[in-house]
């Protein structure tokens, strides 16, 4: 009787400890005022992207050359117009969609293929590991943006191609992070025990290694979204991004660059949108890392 009660108490204590740990994580994350601010910015970005048609005051691609380069506030254009007379505010609102779509899809693309490579490389080891890592090293020898530029120059403009180009450039980073995790976890005692108990590879991989790699993966992915958004803007800025006239913050900045004297807002605002978005994501990512594990090397 006493034993049962003891055991019950132990289980309850364990559950309690777990609940407390989770609570502590959320509290830590939210108590971090910067992380909360970052989360707010991300939330705002997502709302803007989803409800773009409701928020925008004009169709984003509607041209009116008679109203080109209007200043902010004039004739119902909150932030003025560009050289084609398109409403800057509406284009910024719609531009959030491109940033968000590219940021998320490219990272998912890179995370999926990169994690696969990293898992195989780290888990199988030996020659397979050596070959995969040489390929990853080779990919890493290109400055990130340069790899994307070269890929875009081959693939041609377009949203899907941007996602692929930035996604491919993201593969080596994810592969490295995941491989490192797998190597650490593989060596840990409990995996040895599991293996000695006759667990199958698939089980070890997907029940033990994958869940334990999640924390660094999530932090790394968050930071990568910020990088991907900057990359998309860079590509569009170089004229290698999404096809015109699609509104993207990078291409708006490129157009604005040519009208610095007449209409400096154009370049200023589109760049600010990028900066604030990326800052928000980085704030959140930093907070996430600190809350999960401040010692994490990502």
């Amino acid at each position: 009787m006493v034993e049962v009660a003891n055991e019950l108490e132990q289980t309850r204590e364990l559950q309690y400890a777990k609940a407390r740990k989770e609570q502590a994580f959320t509290r830590k994350l939210l108590r971090n005022r910067f992380a909360a601010l970052g989360l707010g910015i991300i939330f705002l970005l997502i709302v803007t992207a989803i409800f773009a048609p409701l928020i925008a005051t004009h169709p984003p691609n509607q041209m009116d050359v008679t109203k080109s380069l209007l200043g902010p506030g004039s004739e119902g254009h909150l932030l003025g117009t560009d050289s084609y007379g398109r409403d800057t505010f509406s284009r910024i609102v719609y531009g959030s969609r491109i940033s968000l779509i590219v940021g998320i899809s490219a990272v998912l693309f890179g995370a999926f293929f990169g994690s696969m490579l990293g898992l195989i490389s780290g888990y199988v080891g030996g020659r397979t590991d050596a070959i995969i890592m040489r390929i990853i090293d080779g990919m890493m020898a290109f400055p990130f943006i340069l790899l994307a530029i070269v890929l875009m120059s081959v693939l041609g403009q377009g949203l899907v191609n941007v996602v692929i180009a930035i996604g491919v450039s993201n593969i080596p980073g994810f592969a490295r992070v995941i491989r490192g995790q797998v190597l650490t976890i593989k060596e840990s005692e409990y995996i040895e025990v599991t293996r000695s108990l006759g667990a199958r590879h698939g089980r070890i991989l997907f029940y033990h290694i994958v869940p334990n790699s999640m924390a660094p993966l999530i932090v790394y992915a968050t930071m990568s979204v910020a990088g991907a958004i900057i990359s998309e803007a860079s590509l569009s800025f170089l004229g290698l991004g999404v096809q015109p006239p699609t509104a993207s913050w990078g291409s708006m900045l490129q157009e604005g660059k040519d009208f610095l004297v007449l209409s400096p807002e154009l370049a200023t605002i589109s760049g600010l949108a990028i900066l604030i978005t990326v800052l928000g994501i980085n704030l959140f990512g930093d907070g996430l890392r600190d809350a999960l594990d401040p010692k994490m090397k990502v």
Binding site: F34, A226, I230, A233, S234, F237, G250, L253, G256, K257, L260, V261, P264, A267, T268, S270, G271, L272, I274, L275, V278, L279, I281, N282, L283, D286
Partner: peptide
Amino acid sequence: SLVGVSMPIFWLGVMLVLAFSV
């Protein structure tokens, strides 16, 4: 430094031109 690492440098470049050249 957090603002710095989040900076789209092509934008910063354009802003520097706007401020110091234009």
